[in-house]
């Protein structure tokens, strides 16, 4: 009988030690003060700020060094005025073909399609309505300033990509779109010949 009681005690220990972990529980830690940062980490909850976030926007009116400020408003007038906006960068062909394509595939191709024909994967499987094609019609000859404005603020069902792409990346993607459009896109007119919407 003595052995039996030993057995029960031991099997109890085994059972409990096996139950420390389950998938809903991150498990135990060794010296938690060395694991968790004393300072608030990016993306963590923060009781000090009113909105409870550690990630804060810079104070209103302050501008980070080198940050580009887009001068046109998200209005119909702003859209029309953005025609004057020109690409300030000169990219090498290599940059456009590699980095530009990379960014296009991540951010645009899911709807606009790898070729820019508006037949991305989400459109093909019927989850999202097709956007207009780049390869003909209005978008083929849309001035690059208006294209930038659209990436900045979104248009129709397309959302803003201002937070995902920075100033240089936006122009890089637009340059890549021009290569998709071939000759017509490369000479995207700076002056507005297509729009009569707000006149």
């Amino acid at each position: 009988m003595k052995q039996l009681s030993y057995i029960t005690i031991l099997s109890f220990i085994i059972l409990t030690s096996a139950c420390i972990r389950n998938s809903k529980n991150p498990g135990r830690e060794y010296m938690p003060d060395m694991v968790h940062s004393t300072a608030y980490e990016a993306g963590s909850v923060n009781p000090i700020f009113k909105d409870g976030k550690t990630n804060q926007l810079p104070p209103k009116g302050s501008v980070a060094q080198g940050k580009y400020i887009y001068p046109y408003d998200n209005t119909i007038e702003g859209y029309e005025a953005s025609v004057a906006n020109k690409n300030p960068f000169t990219f090498t062909k290599d940059e456009v073909d590699n980095q530009g394509q990379h960014l296009y595939k991540i951010n645009c191709a899911i709807c606009h399609g790898d070729k820019g024909d508006g037949q991305g994967h989400l459109v093909e499987i019927g989850k999202f309505p097709p956007p207009p094609t780049y390869l003909s019609g209005v978008l083929l000859t849309l001035p690059e300033g208006k294209r930038y404005h659209t990436v900045m603020y979104g248009k129709g069902l397309m959302g803003s990509y201002a937070s995902q792409l920075d100033h240089r990346e936006r122009w890089l993607v637009l340059e890549y779109v021009k290569t998709l459009q071939g000759d017509a896109g490369a000479s995207a007119p700076a002056t507005d010949s297509t729009s009569t919407a707000a006149k």
């Binding site: 052995q3 030993y6 031991l10 099997s11 220990i13 085994i14 030690s17 420390i20």
Partner: peptide, 21 residues
Amino acid sequence: AVIIAAVLLLFNIGNGAINLG
């Protein structure tokens, strides 16, 4: 049984210690 239990216990303790954190 006691020997098996002891081995299992040691194994569990060791494993648990390795998996701490």
